[in-house]
Write a protein that binds this DNA or RNA. Structure first.
Lengths: 202, 202
DNA sequence: TGGCTTATTTTGACACTGTCAAGATTATTC
DNA sequence: GAATAATCTTGACAGTGTCAAAATAAGCCA
């Protein structure tokens, strides 16, 4: 016995987060129930309620974590020049992020939290910040190459919608083939680059 | 009393579909329970099981209906020349379709059926047919205007992902502002059109 | 140390869900 | 009219999120 069953767990909060992530990977967002989670943590059904107000709060905490990771990834990948290769690579990394952790991605952007649930202020903050970072970095990469009447913010929104749409199609089980997805994303990037004004490093 | 409570309802199948659609609009996909539905139809909890194998089958039937409507809309809007106005108009109609019936759209493309559930063969057929029609019609509109190394199917997939991504962002409660969405979609269309080879009616 | 307060955990309960089994009732068919 | 099939009902079960009240442990101040 590694740990004699004490009345006080000692580190329930972080244990819950860790096991919740595991449950998410294994059983999906539908299979993640507070009761199962409590059992995994070796604690009674209602113990988690003293660490998270309700299930929504737990899910928001998980989503917040995931957004931090995404934000880091964006900062890491979306820098340097705005060459087609760089942007293409970023898109591939985004798709990988979403397809390798589909349930977390669903949690981050899905209706469970944003529509049915009630997103935490903390979650909203990190989510909006992620997008702002994306828009800023993409904007600086395309600087001077957009037509005069084109708002960089709109381009950021549109391109993000495209990537996000692809991710949803795969994650929701409509597209299954990842090679297809990669090819489609390359096509999308190619179309956008074709619309830009030519520049020296093309 | 409009109808004396008989043992046999007489038209339960279509009544269930009708009331299920109403429940979907009013309470959302999460609020749609078989028991509530049965009560609305004035029938006991398990009566629906003699008309639909389970809840999944019911949802698939609803989604199938919705796909038929979408298919009709595509056929209606995506014809004629491939001018920017026509395509723009189609996109607006698609967004309208999704935002006016968000819960049906969620049902059509969401994970409830495609991932967690088990899509009916009938549903798969009509869903794939819808996309095929979209791809065919868009392809014929862009005929001769795409770069030589560009597969029209990929363009169809990429553009659909963009529209779909926008719809999801709105439906899932992440974007709230519909005017923004309209502007973003116009930006996306503009970018695609800019990448095309110029043609007489531009 | 002792006692008080607070944090943490438990058991019991409630309303809700989808769905199965077995029986009751009506319609259909021969 | 009798047998069969379709349709509907009641009862039950396991599962869910969450509240209230009681039990237990930890922290703190004297």
């Amino acid at each position: 016995m590694s740990r004699p069953a004490r009345y006080h767990h000692g580190d329930l909060h972080s244990t819950l987060l860790r096991e919740a992530n595991r449950l998410l990977d294994e059983d999906g967002i539908d299979g993640l129930s507070l009761r199962k989670l409590a059992e995994r943590a070796g604690v009674s059904r209602t113990a988690p309620y003293h660490h998270f107000r309700d299930k929504n709060a737990l899910l928001c905490a998980l989503a917040t974590q995931a957004f931090s990771q995404l934000d880091e990834m964006i900062a890491r990948q979306l820098q340097g020049d705005g060459s087609r290769e760089r942007i293409q690579h970023f898109v591939s990394e985004y798709l990988r992020f979403a397809t390798e952790h589909p349930e977390q991605y669903e949690l981050m952007f899905g209706r469970t939290i944003w529509k049915s649930g009630d997103p935490t202020d903390e979650l909203k903050a990190v989510a909006y910040r992620s997008f702002r970072h994306y828009a800023e970095r993409l904007g600086s990469q395309l600087q001077g190459r957009l037509p005069a009447d084109t708002d960089p913010l709109r381009v950021a929104q549109a391109s993000w919608a495209t990537i996000h749409g692809l991710c949803r199609l795969v994650i929701d089980g409509i597209y299954v083939n990842r090679d297809d997805m990669e090819a489609v994303s390359q096509q999308a990037v190619a179309l956008i680059m074709a619309a830009l004004k030519p520049v020296k490093n093309d």
